[in-house]
Structures are given as structure tokens and as C-alpha cells.
């Protein structure tokens, strides 16, 4: 029988994809299993572990307990249902706040870095990467000092509001350098001719930016939005430090449950329910924004 001949340079695409798929699957098993256990446990009477699979029963009790603010079946409510709802709301406020501030500023600054000539532009662009490398924790003392100083002149009844604004701005500030860099990359890909073309057609600068440039960098905006949303949603240290102890987010709430020895007290499936809820928006938001991230069309412009 003749051996099957193939082109030397051609890798068998289908086999390649299959191999890649298997590798990715194996690599993600630990993560997938962990998430599965977490989510499944929130619907069972006890945490899923290997030995007691046979004794598991389906229940919504954990979710009910969680929303009632109870940590175990027997205990009295530590938090009220309103507390829980407020924590969820707080999480959204911080996440969307960070997302809005970051996306707006990064989009504008990215355009400036990509298109405008100004002194120190090159230095600034290099600085962005360096700034991103700074861990937020290392800045926390300075940021806290600034918080205390700036809080002074503000009447005390506004302090909670101010704390929220401060958390959002401070957390966004950590995200912005990298996101400016990302947006600059997207703006760089838009040819000057497209802008000129619109100017010649009679559009104002603002109109060109809004109707021509922004739609072309939509994938970049989507990417920056999702990164900053996730950053805001998961913000832990800044929220712990700046928000008053009564105002928690899901992240600090869950962290609180697990800290300070309370782990032995709480019913773990309740924590699993909190964890699952904590995951949900990120998943939904990601699947919503993902399609924008994948569509890059700069055709119709040959270069």
C-alpha cells in the first residue's frame, strides 16, 4: 500500500484543533471542577466532597438563607435581607463606577496618545506601562493619606457618598494606564484617511470622533469595559479600606465570612451560594460584551 502523501508545510488543521482542544480542556479541568463544585454546592444540603456524593440532595435552602442574611440554619440572622441586597447594589455601584470612569478616560486619553502631538507624549506612553506594573497595595498608604486629607472639608453626612466616589476613582486610577495603552493600540489601527475623509465630507471634529472613530474602536471599548468591570467587581482591598464597615460589597462580604474564624461557624453551602452569585454578573457581562471584542472590521480601507 502506498503511504499517504501530504504537503510538507501543511499541518493537518483538524487534528491540530483537536489536539489543542484536548490540551486546553485538560488544563482547565482544575478550574472547571472548582467552579462546578462551588455552583453545585450552593444547591445541595452540604458541600460536595468525594465521599458523600450519595447523600446529597437538591435544595434551594442555601440561597434562601443567604438572602435572609443567615449564616447557618440554626443561627439568628446576622445580616438582614436588606443588608444583603444593599451589598449586591454596592458591588454594582463600585463595578459600574470603575467601569464608566475607566472606559471614558481611557478612551479619551487613548485617542490623545494615538493622534495628538504634545510635549512628553513618548515619555507618557512609556510611563503608562510602568504605572501598570505598580501593585495597588503598595500605593495604599499614600492613597489613604490623600483620602483622609481630602475628606476633611467635606461635611460628615456626605462621607459615605464620598467614600464610594473615592473608591471608584482610586480603583479606576489603577486600571486606567493599561487601558489607555489598549485603547491607543486600537486608535492606532484606524487610518488617518478615514478621519480626513469625514472632515472633507463636512463633519465636525466631535462628529468624526463620535460617528466614525468610536464605532471603529468598539472592540477596544468592549475589552476595556469588561476588564474594568471585573476589576471593580472584584475590588477587595480598596473597598475594605475606604468604605465604612457597614457598607460591604459581595467581595468584602465573602471575605468577611471566611476570615476571623467564622469559617467554623458558617454553613459552607451558604458561602457557595454567595460565591455563585458573585460569579454570575461577570459571566453574563462577559458573554454580552464578547461579541464586540471579536468583531474587528477595518475593511473598506486598503493599506
Amino acid at each position: 500500500m502506498m503511504p499517504e502523501t501530504t504537503d510538507v508545510e501543511t499541518i493537518n488543521r483538524r487534528r491540530m484543533n483537536l489536539a489543542l482542544g484536548i490540551v486546553v480542556l485538560i488544563a482547565s479541568i482544575p478550574i472547571l471542577v472548582t467552579y462546578f463544585i462551588l455552583m453545585a454546592s450552593s444547591f445541595t444540603n452540604q458541600m460536595i466532597t468525594g465521599s458523600m456524593v450519595g447523600q446529597l440532595t437538591f435544595t434551594l435552602r442555601n440561597w434562601i438563607l443567604f438572602f435572609e442574611g443567615k449564616l447557618t440554619v440554626a443561627s439568628a440572622a446576622v445580616y438582614s435581607m436588606w443588608d444583603i441586597l444593599r451589598y449586591i447594589l454596592n458591588t454594582f455601584i463600585v463595578a459600574f463606577g470603575v467601569m464608566l470612569v475607566t472606559t471614558a478616560l481611557a478612551t479619551m486619553a487613548g485617542y490623545a496618545c494615538s493622534r495628538m502631538k504634545f510635549r512628553g507624549r513618548k515619555f507618557l506612553i512609556q510611563l503608562l506601562i510602568l504605572l501598570h506594573a505598580f501593585p495597588g497595595v503598595s500605593l495604599i498608604i499614600a492613597v489613604y493619606a490623600l483620602y483622609i486629607f481630602s475628606k476633611g472639608p467635606i461635611p460628615s453626612q456626605w462621607w459615605t457618598l464620598y467614600a464610594f466616589i473615592y473608591v471608584i476613582v482610586a480603583r479606576a486610577a489603577l486600571e486606567i494606564p493599561m487601558d489607555i495603552w489598549i485603547m491607543k493600540g486600537f486608535f492606532d489601527k484606524v487610518p488617518w484617511e478615514v478621519e480626513w475623509s469625514a472632515l472633507i465630507d463636512g463633519a465636525s471634529r466631535i462628529k468624526v470622533w463620535k460617528d466614525i472613530i468610536l464605532p471603529l474602536v468598539k472592540p477596544g471599548i468592549a475589552a476595556v469595559a469588561i476588564f474594568s468591570f471585573i476589576a471593580g467587581w472584584g475590588a477587595l482591598i480598596y473597598v475594605l479600606v475606604f468604605l465604612p464597615p457597614t457598607e460591604k460589597t459581595l467581595a468584602t462580604y465573602i471575605a468577611g465570612l471566611l476570615a476571623g474564624g467564622s469559617l467554623e461557624v458558617v454553613h459552607l453551602p451558604v458561602v457557595a451560594a454567595a460565591g455563585t452569585l458573585y460569579l454570575l454578573p461577570t459571566l453574563i457581562f462577559f458573554s454580552f460584551v464578547r461579541r464586540y471584542m471579536l468583531q474587528t472590521s477595518l475593511s473598506g480601507i486598503k493599506g
Binding site: S197, P215, S297, S299, I301
Partner: peptide
């Protein structure tokens, strides 16, 4: 450029990729 009322065809065409052909032409 708008006040001069010129039509310019660029080497790379510089069409607006997110608009249909109709909207590209109707834009000005």
C-alpha cells in the same frame, strides 16, 4: 476642507467600515 467643497478619493478608499454603502455615500 468642507468649506472648499472638494471630493477626495484616498489611495486606501477610507470607506467607513461600519456603514453600509448607502450610508457611506449619504454621509456627506
Amino acid at each position: 476642507p468642507a468649506e472648499r467643497n472638494v471630493g477626495l478619493v484616498f489611495q486606501n478608499y477610507a470607506l467607513y467600515p461600519h456603514m453600509k454603502v448607502y450610508d457611506n455615500i449619504a454621509f456627506p
